[in-house]
């Protein structure tokens, strides 16, 4: 079986890889590109642990084929910090205890960052609905929602 050659951009870098037609973008990220920050919790788009941006659009990488990334830009959790400078969401997730086991954290951070780019001043309800596709079983979501709202306020203040 001949594999597909894909040219794409991941976290700002030009990347090319070979994949099988049935490989998902998540398979490629984790197994080929060694970017294991995106997690597979369900492989059906129900948990959001594999959330990434493709051309700026929030998607589940388990529901995108690796071959579809041709010519696109992909952003993952590994690209969220700039060098050793954490994104304010990352900082606040640590400082405000918005994570416990941490398995859902990369997906939630990617999704929350995308929300704040679209809506710098979301209500609690808007944050809760935006993140409804990111399952967390440890926290009851409380500290996550607070961290996102606090970060939004902080970023608005800084802007």
């Amino acid at each position: 079986m001949s594999r597909i050659h894909v040219n794409t951009t991941v976290n700002g870098d030009a990347v090319d890889y070979l994949c099988e037609a049935e490989d998902t973008l998540l398979d490629v990220l984790r197994d080929t590109l060694d970017l294991t920050g995106s997690k597979e919790g369900c492989a059906s788009g129900d948990c959001g642990a594999c959330s990434v941006l493709v051309d700026g659009r929030l998607v589940c990488s388990c529901l995108v084929l690796g071959a579809e990334a041709e010519g696109r830009t992909v952003e993952t959790i590994e690209g969220m910090a700039e060098g050793d400078t954490l994104h304010p969401l990352q900082k606040n997730f640590i400082n405000k205890a918005a994570l416990q086991c941490g398995i859902c954290t990369p997906g939630i951070l990617v999704a929350a960052k995308n929300l704040l780019e679209k809506n710098p001043d979301p209500s609690e309800e808007e944050v809760r609905y935006w993140l409804a596709g990111n399952l967390c079983r440890c926290t009851g979501y409380d500290k996550i929602i607070r961290a996102v709202l606090d970060t939004a306020a902080e970023m608005r203040g800084a802007a």
């Binding site: 788009g45 129900d46 959001g48 959330s51 493709v54 659009r57 929030l58 998607v59 589940c60 529901l63 995108v64 999704a111 609905y129 935006w130 993140l131 409804a132 596709g133 990111n134």
Partner: peptide, 9 residues
């Protein structure tokens, strides 16, 4: 249909 993520696709 689905989540924010699913909506994107």
């Amino acid at each position: 249909i689905g989540s924010t993520q699913v909506q994107g696709r």
